[in-house]
Nucleic acid binder design. Structure first.
Lengths: 191, 191
DNA sequence: CCGTTAAACTGAGGGTGGCTCGAGTACTTA
DNA sequence: TAAGTACTCGAGCCACCCTCAGTTTAACGG
């Protein structure tokens, strides 16, 4: 029979997650893992016992938060296509901007199946895919726009927010979405 | 009177620049400076004697290259506004993508007067400003678009190219520029 | 309550990299 | 060729990543 998990193990796991969350918010996802272990009053080895590498720790910190994000994304299915697209991109950009450096991990995670963030990335891309294909059907968005375009836009937006003002990032994202829409200058979608 | 600079100093300087260029191309601007010193057959201290920090070294590597870039940018003054804008952004994105990590240094350099890259950043932004204001006058680009928008777009494009395919980055940039243009959906320019 | 057992914890240690500074070297100049 | 100094060297300190052999401690069965 399998034993019940040890109480100290669970306690350390939770402490590590809590401190990692705080530290990543303050210093970004590139923060010192030894520092996180220190703050959690735990030896480095313990941290590595629970989370084999930085990505795993970031992934764990994000897990709950991501659930809420994905739920919100799916709730957008009812909205008008353009609204849904704008809000989804905005949601993800704000989410990613909570932790400096996350945009990079996400952008790299979509192509790396070994990444602990891969599942989250594909989930994000899938939701974007649904929204964008609905928008194309509705004739709102150009038919040649892909899910990859939307995923990339989200990452670029999040990165921009780390290196410029939130307003500047929002402007750029907004312009880009304008560019994705059907207009007199762009190919018309099938009705 | 000031002496002629020592021959060995100049030799080391040049070797360091050459190796730094090669290494930054191969490994990005985050590469080990100790490794660069080793490759240049020089002690670390010598590297730091010539270039006090990583940004200074990157800036020096970029200097000549930047001149060519700026010249090309100014040569675009004759082109049609939209063409000039697209080509300028493309030029800078390709330039920045030569060295992984450069997009970040540039994005941060525009706000940091102490950065050795600050001058290059403002120069880039200035050229963008000229092109965009000409395009606005011509009624091609929305009147609310700023030089900062263009600078940010260039950085975001370069970053995207580091984390996705060149094609994907080009698509996104292209869509964004579409969004900057005057169309039936956006505010009309004067004229 | 107390062994037994395995899961979990610990932290020294080996590796890499950034950067400094005092001692030594070698180039220029007169 | 000697003086003077610009330049070079690299050991050394610090921070970080990650591992693993030895130790602790919680869970379980009697």
């Amino acid at each position: 029979m399998s034993r019940r998990p040890r109480a100290d193990a669970r306690r350390n796991h939770d402490r590590l997650l809590a401190e990692a969350d705080a530290v990543f918010r303050e210093q970004g996802t590139g923060a010192s893992l030894e520092g996180i272990a220190r703050r959690a009053d735990v030896a480095v080895g313990t941290l590595y016992g629970h989370f084999p590498n930085r990505r795993a720790l970031v992934g764990a910190v994000l897990r709950e938060r991501n659930e809420a994000l994905f739920d919100a994304g799916e709730a957008l299915a009812g909205k008008a296509p353009e609204e849904a697209l704008r809000q989804w991109v905005d949601l993800v950009v704000s989410h990613a901007a909570t932790y400096r450096g996350l945009a990079e991990l996400l952008a790299d995670g979509i192509d790396d199946e070994a990444s602990e963030l891969h599942a989250s990335c594909t989930r994000m891309a899938d939701i974007g895919e649904q929204i964008v294909s609905r928008a194309i059907e509705a004739g709102t968005v150009r038919p040649d726009v892909t899910a990859a375009d939307v995923f990339t836009l989200m990452n670029a937006g999040a990165w921009t927010r780390e290196h410029a003002s939130a307003e500047q990032a929002a402007r750029l994202v907004s312009y880009t979405i304008d560019g994705l829409l059907v207009s007199d200058r762009s190919p018309q979608g099938a009705v």
